[in-house]
Amino acid sequence: MTTPLTPVTAPPPKAQAAGTTMAGRRDKTVSWLLRRGGLHLVLLIICLIWLVPTVGLFITSLRPRPDIGSTGWWTILQAPGLSFDNYADVLGSKGMSAGFLNSLFISIPSTIIPVLVGALAAYGFAWIKFPFRDTMFLIVVGLMVVPIQMTFVPVLSILNTLNLNQSYVGIWLAHSAFGLPFAIFLLRNFFVMLPGELIEAAFLDGASTLGIFIKIIMPLSVPALASLTIFQFLGVWNDLLMALIFIQDPNARPLTVKVSTLLSTYGTEWHLLSSGAFLIMIIPLIVFFALQRYFVAGMLGGAVKS
């Protein structure tokens, strides 16, 4: 993923006219502009398109409410005056600090459970022989694409029957189950690549299957486990749909749902929406900048079998 890039050098320009006249030099500049300048320009435009919308919302989140409606954020240099007041407002009176904690309460167990359960199963699928193993694994591969919409009504009923609908346990279990097929798939593909001699040697030394799993497989698989953990955590943290359905108590709602309520209660009050949106984004942004490598690896693991 982060293979050092080898800059592809353009082929040497066809024999340049020997005596470099002024015109010749201008031709050279023109051809550089055509060859490289265009490339840099296109990349610059791409970067602007992908940066400007987010930056604009961020600047807005720091502007006082009366300014937002009267002048565009792009005029900020003419009329500076930024503060974190909007954040104080959404975190305080608009209940977002509770939303932030709720998001954490939902996300952490919903990440740990599927990673652990998935790792156990992946080890079974990768290194232990048992009847119908491969068939069962193919079923798991198939389950990866089942739309979660297929499960909403029944899972709600099951949670009601088990009296789990008023706590976080329900959404923990649901997120865990829906994250599992991918977790098993990703980890099993990593585990099978581990050196078999190591496992056999430990087995001959009398290590138990569980001992091998804990002492050999897990430590060797830290990169894969990290990728999966980040991937699952961000997926749950960013989820809106499942929280809408499985969390009925308004006080228990995560940030994503709270921001959607902000929109329906206050309409397009941009000083609230912009700061609310950035509260949702803050943790993913930190994770992204700190652990981008693992995040990308997790996504590649899902998309292309390495």
Binding site: W50, T54, G56, L240, S260, P284
Partner: peptide, 17 residues
């Protein structure tokens, strides 16, 4: 790649804006 890490909810607010 950055938007991939962001919640669709936040992306929706960015683009509504």
């Amino acid at each position: 790649f950055l938007p991939m890490a962001i919640a669709a909810t936040a992306v929706a607010i960015i683009w509504l804006f």
